[in-house]
Every structure is written in C-alpha cells, then in structure tokens.
Amino acid sequence: MGIRTLVAMLAVALVVIGALATQESYKVFMPGLLQGAVLTIEIAILGSLLAIVMGVLAALARMYGPAPLRWLATVYVEIFRGTSALVQLFWLFFVLPQFGVTLDAFLVAVLALGLNVGAYGSEVVRGAIQSVARGQWEASTALNMSRPQMLRRIILPQAFVAMIPPWGNLFIELLKSTALVSLITLSDLAFKAQQMNQNTFKTIPIFTLVLLMYLAMSLVVTIGMRLLERRASLGLARGKAA
C-alpha cells in the first residue's frame, strides 16, 4: 500500500475518532481509553528498544560469537520463537515469583514483549547481514580491516536499509502484542476496553474506538518506517536513476 494511502487512512481514522468523541454515547469512554493508550505506547516503545538490542546482539552472537555464546543465543532465539508471547508473559509473571524473583508487571510486560520480538528480530538482522554482497567482505579484507571494523563501517550500514521493512512489521506485531499485558493486570488500552465493556456493556462504541486507536498507532509506525526507509535508501541509491 502506498504511503499516500496510509496517510489518508490515518487521517480518516483520526477524524472518525474525533467525530465519535464528540458524541454523547462515546465521549464518556475517551478519558479512560486515552489513559490506557498512553500505557500501551510506553510499553510498545520500551519493548521495541529492548527488541532491537536483543535482535542485534543475538544475531551477532550467533554469527560471530565463540561457541558458548553462539549456543546461548540459539537457545534464546529458539525458545522465544518457539513458544508464544502469552506463554512467555505468563511464565515471567506467574512462575518467576516461585523462584523468588518478583518483577513489577510493567517490567514483565516490557521484558516479555521485547525478548519475544527480539528473537524474531535476530533473524531479520542475520538475514540482512547475509544479504550484503560477498564482494563487500572481500574488499574490506583486502583493505585489512578487522572484523568489527568491517561490520560497523561497511556491512551494517548496508544491511540497515534491508532491515527497515521487516523491523517495521515486527514493531507492528509488538504494538499489537501489548494488548496481552491486559491479562497480567496492567491497565493498558485493551484492559480499559475490557473493563468498561464489563461495566457498561456498550460493546460497539467502546470497541470501535479502541480498534480505531490501535489502527492509528499502527499506521503511525508503518508510515514512520516507510519514511525512514526512503531516507536510508537515498544514500545507497543516490544517482542510480541518472
């Protein structure tokens, strides 16, 4: 879908939210939902940051680390990709305390989502690094660069462009997964919706607003990543058309 269509969809979503918010039957839900949305955004941002860090570290460890580190990273990736996000969330929330480690629910949320998406992210990073042409490694070797120098200066800047679209998808997945934290007592957008629905049974207005809010947040991420991609590929493609 083109970036113009996405921006148009975002505009429509925001206008509809605004229009509904002036209606008496919808208005009452707005303050609570917005409060929930703030928590959703906080968890999504922190989770994404953790996912990036874990994704890059796990990918580098798997590709270039010494055997024990490689092994550790593989186990991490397989476990977090092989079980579902909700299982991981519940495990950290319910089981860790039985080992005497009690984490605050917010921290559990960020950890579980960040680690989960980071595992998928490591595959993205790995694929992007492997997609850089072999000649680039060879030229860097011929210039006698060390492996960290090659990675930092030559390979990663080129892999970065290839990583942006798949990371965009992962950020959307993470944003959507934040709804799960409502099941471990956090008052995010999904929790507020569920709570208000139980109290008022006004299912249609509440869920219409909530779905539109999630849509708007996802579109912001998608559009942002498209713009980033456009900017980043500029350096590589400069003058290619000429």
């Binding site: 959307i172 959507k176 709804a179 409502s182 999904a190 919706a193 869920f207 779905l211 999630y214 849509l215």
Partner: peptide
C-alpha cells in the same frame, strides 16, 4: 492486520 487479535 493493524489491530490486536485479542481485541478482535
């Protein structure tokens, strides 16, 4: 695809 499965 842009909205959470749980909400759906």
């Amino acid at each position: 695809r842009s909205t959470p499965l749980l909400i759906q």
